[in-house]
Design a protein around this nucleic acid. Sequence first.
DNA 1: CGTGCTCGTTAGAAATTACTTATATAAGTA
DNA 2: TACTTATATAAGTAATTTCTAACGAGCACG
Lengths: 114, 114
Amino acid sequence: MHAFDVLGDPVRRRILELLAEGEQAAGEIGAVVQEEFGISQPAVSQHLRVLRDNGFTTVRAMGTRRLYSVDPSPLREIDEWLERYRRFWSQRLDALGTELARGKRQRRLSAPSS
Amino acid sequence: MHAFDVLGDPVRRRILELLAEGEQAAGEIGAVVQEEFGISQPAVSQHLRVLRDNGFTTVRAMGTRRLYSVDPSPLREIDEWLERYRRFWSQRLDALGTELARGKRQRRLSAPSS
DNA sequence: CGTGCTCGTTAGAAATTACTTATATAAGTA
DNA sequence: TACTTATATAAGTAATTTCTAACGAGCACG
């Protein structure tokens, strides 16, 4: 399954958004996602499997819990694929556009403030 | 259809890659894609439709030809969605990593030489 | 006109996906 | 041990996607 297919599902995107805030147990994720999407526990578990199998998450066991974390590798690949299109919106004019956030961060990294 | 679903298909990704090099007629795209994926002309036309309907391309007519171009809007949205994960691989250490290209570009835009 | 391109649309079959219900396993707890 | 909690897996079904084959419509050109 290609990374884009994995991200095609809104439940999986939501799970990744939750994990972006830090490691979480399958049950905690499930509580939120089942509530928001009205699906069953096995459905969530199956989405977690897809994310696992495709390298988007890592898991470690804590007792009976399964703690999930983001593995950024496939997201990074997508970021690289997008590279060839950035010129379509990065070519000047938008110094104050969407790029601003990243621009600022980059600037900070590039030219550390004394 | 969500932008990620659109990009889930390898044929559509390939078409966008071809269009990244500039405007092209449906037939030119078709020639390449039919050869590479072994699918029919209608199949390609259907993929072009998905790209059109979801804002990834714009089209203009030249006689009987249909000239397609990249519309970057949805790609940009994806780029923005990815923003929340960049810290996973951008947090230092990779001054010489994948970020390099973009980093350099950003630096150029941010701090014009001379 | 009529004929040949270029390209899009439709209908239907085949493959894939994302659920639900039912069940399994393993760890904690009384 | 028996019971509960946390999570995964399996089987079956419904919805969706992506093809092919067939057809349609617009432009060009003799």
